Amino acid sequence: MTTHETRKTALIFGASRGLGLAMAAEYVSRGWCVTATVRGDRRTELNDLAGSSDGRLTVEKVDITVPEQIAALHARVAGTAFDLLFVNAAITNGDVQIGDVTTETFNRVMVTNALSPMRVVEAFQDVVPPAGTIGVMSSRQGSLTLNDRAGYEVYRAGKSALNQLMRSFAARHADDQRTMLLLCPGWVQTDLGGPAAPLTIGESVPGVVDTIEKHAGEGGLHFVDYQDQTVPW
């Protein structure tokens, strides 16, 4: 029988709503023990999920754009090992051409979508054991190869920067046994994806989790989508 002590564990950043919330719920439904984060003090659906999880979901508060909050959470979970560290964080400024984007908006998107997720990866890598997985939520829009339509240029740039930084992280840890993943969830009906997106959260997230599980213990860096199809750089 699986006990609390032998269950797999996940630390998921950015789980108050949308894809992150659905990932937390999916892992709980699969018997994992999950620690998931929200920003601020407002009660979210994640708190409701925690209340019905039989103690298998813990909610932590952190704004990953604030380095001091990252450090504080790291201190709270120090000594705990997680089979999966996953960072889900993204904002968009809408479909605005780069020449019309303010410096403030550019900085905000880049800090949220690229710098902050990598700060989390750098800070929390020590809680992931050699057989574990470190993943971040990327996007096909971060692919240079697939950009033949333009649009959402700062969002694209932020995801491309995230991909590059994750690739640098992997290069610096070339002998690391852990699996590293850039995950593309598809175009999903979320606040960011919009109602016209072809995928529901329920269609995307089980595939995201299945793909993470497929690569567990494999090692190396992989840029893949929710159907485990390789996404070109």
Rank of each mutant, 00 (worst) to 15 (best):
A174D: 11
N47Y: 11
G55Y: 09
T102K: 00
P117F: 08
L84M: 08
T3G: 15
E104L: 03
D126N: 14
I212A: 09
E5Q: 14
A15F: 03
V77H: 05
T2H: 07
L115S: 12
T102D: 10
T6G: 13
Q227I: 04
D228L: 00
Q125E: 08
G186S: 11
Y226F: 01
V120N: 01
V231C: 09
A15E: 12
R119I: 00
G151W: 00
L181V: 15
G14R: 08
T103L: 10
H173V: 01
R178I: 02
G99K: 00
L144M: 14
F106Q: 06
G158L: 08
L165S: 12
V121Q: 12
Y27K: 10
T37S: 15
A10R: 05
V136G: 02
V208P: 07
N107M: 01
T179D: 05
A90W: 03
G193S: 07
T230E: 15
G94E: 06
M137Q: 13
D175R: 06
A50K: 02
V224G: 07
I70P: 01
V120E: 05
P195N: 03
N163V: 00
P232W: 02
S204G: 10
V121C: 09
Q189E: 14
L49P: 04
E45L: 04
S116G: 11
P67D: 13
G207R: 05
P195R: 00
G219Y: 04
V136W: 07
Y152C: 04
I98V: 15
D176I: 03
A157L: 15
L146P: 03
T92M: 02
P117T: 05
L146Y: 02
G151I: 01
R156A: 05
K214M: 13
A150R: 13
R178M: 07
G14Q: 08
H173P: 11
D126E: 15
H222N: 01
V224N: 05
I134R: 00
A171Y: 04
F124D: 12
A50L: 06
G219K: 03
R43D: 11
P185K: 06
H74Q: 13
T6M: 09
D63W: 06
H173W: 05
A196I: 08
A123V: 08
V128N: 09
T37A: 04
A131Y: 05
A24C: 12
P195K: 03
G186W: 08
V34H: 08
H4I: 06
M180P: 04
A170C: 06
A216R: 04
Q125D: 11
Y27V: 07
